[in-house]
Design a protein around this nucleic acid. Structure first.
Length: 740
DNA sequence: GGTTAGGCTTTG
């Protein structure tokens, strides 16, 4: 065999008796493909290019398949020198992105070989970071350091071009060192959420200021933040995809945690729930934003809750419903749990970026007793006296005392705890904000009189039966039992009863039909612009699984993302150029298929009328109003949970829509008729989840059978065959049959 | 590989 210089690799040549030699400069993740195949991408660089070569030390992508990929992954270290043979040459799909060789080497099949010429031992593989104690910092040097946060400010706008975070950190030396982080992007700032958090700083410059040390980030810096509690999660908070964390790092974090616990550096109550808010006190609040409204240019109203009820009556702030983002009113029960927060000055800009549904931590919030004048909404004297005991909450201007607002990730332990509290709040559920008039809007053929609908409530099953005529004369809001005949129902086509519901903006819409979706797919594939895949994606082509008898299979371009810890192939993008039908077939063979298109040279999701995700037979949709979709790599918080529709929706900035069932029933008894909506309890009524009903025939048949036996004439006007049931909300159809 | 900030007694 003869060796070919990397620079001379090109198409249309026979490489069966050729070798390529190079140093391994990058090793990708091992990707498991379908049917027990593996794939691994690596980059090798020629160290001894011949003098006549066009480029010095050129690099080339090498893609290994099958057992070779697996063996290579186990054996190789960065820095090893290898020789490859038995390869073929293909066009590199990533040449524009990685600026490497326009072709790549493909090593698959029996002839493919990789020989290791020299081997670097594991111990010297990763560059080792050394960390300075905070008492050993030398001005002018660039250091790495660990510290426990004793003071922090959330990123705020500096007078320059960047956002600025300031921290004060300490360690076992008891030195307290100031630290400033500058950067344009919020995601590069330390994700410090409370005093006691631990940070790991890389590449910070030591500067002297007023006889005290300060650490300032330099080029190529990184910050990881860890929970400071003993036994807390070891998952660092970072936006970086490529941080390195080894056993020694974990030990350092553990040591700082136990040291800090002994020093009582962690505040005993990091945040105060609304139920413990005291007048005049300053406190940090973890909460969920429900709605917001601008008051004037220096003040914004945030309406939040945390699931607990404040011991003091909360101040009501009235604003125009039109100016409110999110629901403008809530049920009475919910209103009692909602705190109105007025945020001022510099916080107004940040508040503008918040979305109803966001989980927030608000730092240095002040509880203010008595009525306070809201700019532009001066209340009358009478009202002021009435509200004298009421609590309002202010976030003053400025960043002193760490005043600020931070969006917390949904997976943070404090948010999880708060959600448990919220879930236990009675008389509220996902649909509480959707009222009858909204339902009628959703309904394609609204009944003539909106007054004929009633809202269902769960009940104690001890109410006596009333006639429909009694019911219609009684006050709204009461719970009734009726003994009625189902005269008719709508829609007759089950797919029209399936709706998509957004828990964030409480909108409900029809499920887009296949014709519309197919059209979006064909439109997306018409864009001829080349699409540069993101750096983390592995690009290639896969064959569309065919049907039997197999038609000629077609291959489509795909971009893969693999699971960071298990390295299992778990996520799958497919590029523009395939049809809905092809995507459907891909989804049958691969776990997660996210259709993408080319948009201005970048990878983007399709219009959100199309499913953003195919998982087997199931399709998932996103809310057009609440999503800020972008193709990003999905990351698992703990690294081990499966990548499901929720993880993907979050990574892609998609607000996941929930399938719900909505039916209109026309009830009749001797006294009257009544239209009712079956929806909130529809799933328990049919004993079928709406998501299943959207994807599987068995679930659909079950609903169909239930309706057919309730209303055998299929809802036609001839109802002589209809049977009569005693209906109780919260009751399944099977329960009803037993009672009958 | 430059500038920003460099807690701090807030108050509608």
């Amino acid at each position: 065999m003869t060796r070919v210089p990397i620079s001379l690799i090109g198409p249309d040549a026979d490489y069966s008796d050729k070798t390529v030699k190079g140093k391994v400069v990058r090793i990708g993740r091992l990707v498991s493909l379908a049917s027990d195949n593996n794939l691994l991408k690596t980059v090798i660089q020629e160290e001894d290019s011949p003098p006549n070569a066009s480029a010095q030390n050129p690099s080339i992508n090498v893609v290994l398949f099958g057992g070779l990929a697996k063996d290579f992954n186990q054996a190789v270290n960065q820095g090893d020198v290898v020789v490859a043979s038995g390869f073929t040459v293909g066009r590199s799909p990533t040449v524009h992105k990685d600026k490497l060789h326009p072709f790549n080497l493909l090593l698959s099949g029996d002839e493919a070989r990789v020989y290791m010429i020299s081997h670097v031992s594991r111990a010297t593989k990763a560059p080792k970071y050394t960390y300075s104690g905070l008492d050993a910092l030398k001005a002018g040097s660039v250091v790495n350091a660990y510290g426990v946060v004793v003071f922090f400010k959330q990123p705020f706008k500096s007078r320059g071009t960047d956002l600025c975070s300031t921290l004060k950190i300490t360690d076992q030396s008891n030195q307290r060192i100031a630290c400033s982080v500058f950067g344009e992007k919020l995601e590069n700032h330390p994700k410090v959420f409370q005093v006691g958090d631990i940070v790991r700083l890389h590449r910070f410059k030591v500067q002297f200021f007023n006889s005290s040390m300060t650490l300032v980030n330099t080029f190529g810096f990184s910050v990881l933040a860890f929970d400071g509690a003993e036994g807390g999660s070891m998952e660092p908070r970072t936006s970086s995809r490529s941080f390195h964390l080894d056993q020694e790092d974990r030990r350092t974090v553990e040591e700082l945690r136990s040291w800090a616990a002994g020093q009582a550096l962690l505040p005993p109550t990091p945040t105060t729930p609304l139920s413990a808010a005291q007048p005049k006190a300053y406190f940090d609040l973890t909460c969920q934003l429900l709605a917001k409204a601008p008051i004037d240019s220096t003040c914004t109203l945030l309406r939040v809750w945390d699931g607990t009820r404040c011991a003091h009556t909360l101040l009501k702030v009235t604003v125009e419903p039109d100016a409110t983002e999110g629901p403008s009113s809530f049920s009475e029960a919910r209103e009692r749990l909602i705190a109105n927060i007025l945020v001022y000055d510099n916080h107004v800009e940040l508040a503008g970026q918040l979305k109803p549904g966001d989980f927030l931590r608000i730092y240095n919030l002040r509880a203010i007793p008595g009525s306070s004048k809201v700019p532009g909404h001066a209340s009358s004297h009478q009202q002021e006296e009435e509200e004298v005991d009421h609590l309002a909450f202010h976030l003053h201007g400025g960043t002193a005392y760490g005043r600020g607002i931070r969006v917390l990730p949904e997976n943070s332990p404090d948010v999880q705890e708060m959600k448990r509290v919220m879930e236990a709040v009675p008389d509220e559920d996902d649909f509480s904000e959707l009222n009858d008039s909204q339902l009628l809007e959703v309904w394609s053929t609204p009944p003539e009189s909106a007054g004929e609908s009633v809202v269902s409530r769960s009940c104690g099953h001890d109410t006596r039966t009333v006639t429909l005529s009694d019911l219609k004369r009684s006050d709204p809001g009461l719970v009734h039992h009726v003994r009625v005949q189902l005269r008719s129902y709508e829609p007759h086509r089950l797919h029209q009863a399936l709706k998509l519901y957004c828990s964030k903006c409480t909108s409900m819409e029809d499920v887009p039909n296949d014709e519309l979706v197919a059209r979006l797919f064909s439109e997306a594939s018409e864009d001829p612009a080349p699409c540069s895949p993101p750096a983390w994606a592995l690009s290639g082509r896969v064959a569309i699984p065919g049907e039997r008898p197999a038609p000629p299979t077609r291959a489509v371009g795909v971009h893969l993302s693999t699971h960071p810890v298990t390295q299992l192939f778990s996520f799958f993008f497919h590029a523009a150029g395939s049809t809905l039908e092809e995507t459907r077939r891909l989804a049958a063979g691969y776990q997660n298929v996210v259709p993408v298109r080319s948009s201005g040279g970048h990878m983007a999701l399709l219009d959100l009328s199309a499913p953003f995700l195919f998982r087997g037979l199931k399709r998932y949709f996103g809310c057009k109003r609440c999503s800020e979709a972008a193709v990003r790599e999905p990351v698992c918080a703990e690294g081990l949970e499966p990548i499901d529709e929720k993880v993907l929706a979050e990574a892609l900035g998609v607000q996941l829509l929930q399938f719900v069932l909505l039916m209109k029933l026309e009830l009749q008894d001797a006294s009257d008729r009544l239209d009712v909506f079956l929806w909130r309890d529809a799933e328990s009524f049919f004993g079928v989840s709406a998501e299943d009903a959207a994807a599987n025939q068995e679930a659909q048949n079950s609903i169909r059978q239930t309706m057919a036996s309730l209303c055998p004439a299929g809802g036609s006007t001839g109802t002589s065959g209809s049977r009569v049931y005693t209906a109780q909300s919260g009751c399944s159809f099977t329960d009803m049959l037993q009672e009958y």
